[in-house]
Write a protein that binds this DNA or RNA. Structure first.
Lengths: 234, 234
DNA sequence: ACCTGAACACCGTTCAAGT
DNA sequence: ACCTGAACACCGTTCAAGT
């Protein structure tokens, strides 16, 4: 065993340190780094995505990541691309544009459920990557099938992606936030008692405000978009 | 002049340092700190909101802020409350719920235009503060006038605020991002040439995708919500 | 060509000491 | 009661040196 050689150590009570194998050249890849980043986010939240933690996970020097990504932000963009890939995995158009837009929306939602911290920091980023482009094309294909062309199609694409990605990203943030129980108390409890008569409508629905089913809200939002789109098409 | 006394200085060429007056006790307030935070965000973006920069702006020790806010996050929450106050300033119900919901939506949008960096980091936060509660009550009042009660009202309130705050926050992020010109290039230029036939729909509307008018998109989104709400009411 | 270790300029936060 | 200065444990990023 290595620790039989009693090397003088400034921190004698330091926790067991990973002895850090040296990585062979070429053994690190953007794909492995992206996977490590995603698993750190899943396990410990957004604050765990640091170069130091990546180094531990990858059994490499923290600075080795810089051989493959120019900055922390680029790592996050790669995570966003990975979330797009996960969302689209196995997707095929059904031939029914309404069903396709619903399917794509729930795919994004389920991805945010599976990777909340990653969704909260990456899902509303523009990656300019191939998987994002696949997603854009799939939505535009559905809107084309619905009869929209050119400028109208682009406008509805924007409305749709604002809605879907925004809702998925904020749901990720809700799920990832550590103070889940504290936040559940909510403002109703904090402020309503102070001056209930100034906020009559909020006071009246205080109970329902404390028990929001965000998945139901998302479903309603998607349905309302599809209904409004049908109106636009007439 | 002070510098006639040739005090030996380790950094002889250091830039002129603000001599840092000592603040009298009680002279600092949460309001002044919040205003300083907002003006730092407006002038230099989200990365300028640090304790060191706040100290310079306030002519106080960076740590003095901790007498009034428990953490950086609490300062951001105070900024969010301030954005709510700015948005609501002078608001009164017109008696027409549709006009009120439009008015409130554009108030949030204009606030994001005026304070993009602040909007990008604070606008989709839940503050549990009095100004947020005023906004919630105003939206619920309009939905009540539209005929919605209880659970239905809360659900539509959520759909509406997801839409409005999400869109305003992401528009703030777009405006605040320094690489405005670089981002304007967009993915179409980056990826479409590589394999145009794999993304036929995106390729077809590439020009329109590069020239999105986000304000028009926001307007369309609000109108679609109001249309869909009318359908729900039937 | 890729990986490492040391160093740099920050950052939020804590706390004993001032007034 | 409030403000300050020094200190702490980080952080992203750079770069000369290894292999």
């Amino acid at each position: 065993m290595d620790d039989m050689t009693a090397v003088p150590d400034a921190s004698a009570e330091a926790p067991v340190q990973a002895p850090r194998l040296r990585r062979k050249r070429g053994s690190l890849s953007p794909e492995e780094i992206t996977a490590a980043a995603l698993s750190l986010l899943d396990a410990e939240g957004a604050s765990a995505l640091t170069f130091a933690r990546l180094g531990v996970t990858l059994q490499a020097s923290p600075t080795a990541v810089y051989r493959h990504f120019a900055s922390r932000q680029e790592v996050i963009v790669a995570v966003a691309e990975e979330l797009d890939a996960i969302s689209l995995d196995g997707y095929e158009s059904s031939g029914d544009w309404r069903a396709d837009l619903e399917d794509l929306a729930w795919r994004a939602w389920r991805t945010a459920l599976a990777h909340p911290a990653a969704a909260s920091i990456a899902m509303s980023l523009i990656t300019n990557g191939p998987n994002e482009l696949r997603a854009v094309d799939a939505v535009l294909a559905a809107l084309h099938a619905a009869g929209l062309r050119g400028r109208d199609a682009v406008l509805q694409y924007q409305v749709y992606s604002n809605l879907v990605l925004g809702a998925a990203a904020s749901h990720g943030e809700r799920l990832a936030s550590v103070d889940g129980e504290a936040a559940a108390e909510g403002w109703v409890q904090v402020y309503a008692p102070a001056n209930p008569s100034r906020y009559p409508y909020a006071t009246r629905v205080a109970d329902e405000l404390r028990r929001i089913d965000y998945e139901e809200v998302f479903g309603a939002q998607v349905q309302m978009f599809l209904d409004a789109l049908t109106v636009v098409l007439d």
